[in-house]
Amino acid sequence: MPEPHLLAADADRAAVVIRLDASLADGRLTLAEYEDRAARAHAARTYGELAGLTADLPRPVPQPVRTRPERSPVTRAVYAGAWHGAWDRDLRTAWTGWATTAVLVVGIWLVSVLATGDLQYPWPVWVIGPWGVVLLARTVGERRSRDERGQLPA
């Protein structure tokens, strides 16, 4: 603290009261001691008067300040769960898109098989298979998540 005879500001008094709050929470002060010291802190005029109120308390250990890098709007949305909710709402739409694509590519494959009369390699499996596996895993995950939260499936 600065020199004991200098006048203290409201911010200085508030800082002492915050330190007294922490000491009360830690069990270092009784409620009566805290009330007495807090009242004297609010009435203190100089740094010397404030220093006497916390002289028998351990000095607070400064905590390292952790700063996070600024996140992009997309990253913030993912962390806030915005995409999870959007996926949940659009699950039927995703399955409809998959089914439409499956019908289309299987139809193209069948037309080419019928046109040539030759059984060709079933390439639509590589279009709709991985996509279907991902959608199925996501659907099962969503249902389990709802069950754990106690929500009924939509």
Rank of each mutant, 00 (worst) to 15 (best):
residue 1 M to H: 03
residue 3 E to W: 10
residue 3 E to R: 10
residue 5 H to T: 15
residue 8 A to Q: 01
residue 8 A to D: 00
residue 9 A to E: 12
residue 10 D to N: 10
residue 11 A to E: 15
residue 13 R to W: 00
residue 15 A to Q: 03
residue 16 V to R: 01
residue 16 V to E: 03
residue 17 V to P: 02
residue 18 I to L: 11
residue 18 I to R: 11
residue 18 I to M: 11
residue 21 D to A: 07
residue 22 A to E: 04
residue 23 S to L: 01
residue 26 D to W: 01
residue 28 R to Y: 02
residue 31 L to P: 08
residue 32 A to Y: 02
residue 40 R to C: 00
residue 41 A to Q: 00
residue 43 A to K: 00
residue 43 A to H: 02
residue 43 A to F: 04
residue 45 R to P: 05
residue 46 T to P: 10
residue 46 T to C: 14
residue 52 G to H: 08
residue 52 G to M: 04
residue 53 L to Q: 02
residue 56 D to G: 01
residue 57 L to G: 02
residue 57 L to T: 04
residue 60 P to A: 01
residue 60 P to G: 02
residue 62 P to V: 00
residue 66 R to L: 02
residue 66 R to W: 04
residue 67 T to F: 06
residue 67 T to H: 08
residue 71 R to M: 05
residue 73 P to G: 11
residue 74 V to P: 00
residue 75 T to I: 03
residue 75 T to P: 00
residue 78 V to G: 02
residue 78 V to F: 03
residue 78 V to Y: 04
residue 78 V to D: 04
residue 79 Y to P: 00
residue 80 A to E: 06
residue 84 H to A: 06
residue 85 G to E: 10
residue 85 G to N: 15
residue 85 G to V: 13
residue 88 D to I: 15
residue 88 D to N: 11
residue 89 R to T: 13
residue 93 T to K: 13
residue 93 T to R: 09
residue 95 W to A: 13
residue 95 W to G: 11
residue 97 G to K: 12
residue 97 G to F: 13
residue 98 W to R: 12
residue 101 T to V: 10
residue 103 V to H: 08
residue 105 V to E: 06
residue 105 V to L: 07
residue 106 V to G: 08
residue 108 I to F: 06
residue 109 W to E: 06
residue 110 L to P: 07
residue 110 L to Q: 13
residue 111 V to S: 06
residue 111 V to D: 08
residue 114 L to N: 15
residue 115 A to K: 05
residue 115 A to S: 05
residue 118 D to S: 15
residue 120 Q to S: 12
residue 121 Y to E: 07
residue 122 P to R: 15
residue 122 P to K: 13
residue 122 P to E: 15
residue 124 P to C: 09
residue 126 W to Y: 13
residue 126 W to F: 09
residue 126 W to P: 06
residue 126 W to Q: 09
residue 127 V to W: 13
residue 128 I to F: 12
residue 129 G to N: 11
residue 130 P to S: 07
residue 130 P to V: 07
residue 133 V to L: 13
residue 134 V to E: 14
residue 136 L to H: 15
residue 137 A to F: 12
residue 137 A to V: 11
residue 138 R to E: 09
residue 138 R to Q: 09
residue 143 R to L: 12
residue 144 R to D: 11
residue 144 R to M: 09
residue 147 D to Q: 09
residue 147 D to Y: 07
residue 148 E to L: 04
residue 148 E to K: 04
residue 149 R to T: 10
residue 150 G to Y: 08
residue 151 Q to R: 07
residue 151 Q to I: 09
residue 151 Q to E: 15
residue 152 L to P: 09
residue 154 A to W: 13
residue 154 A to T: 11
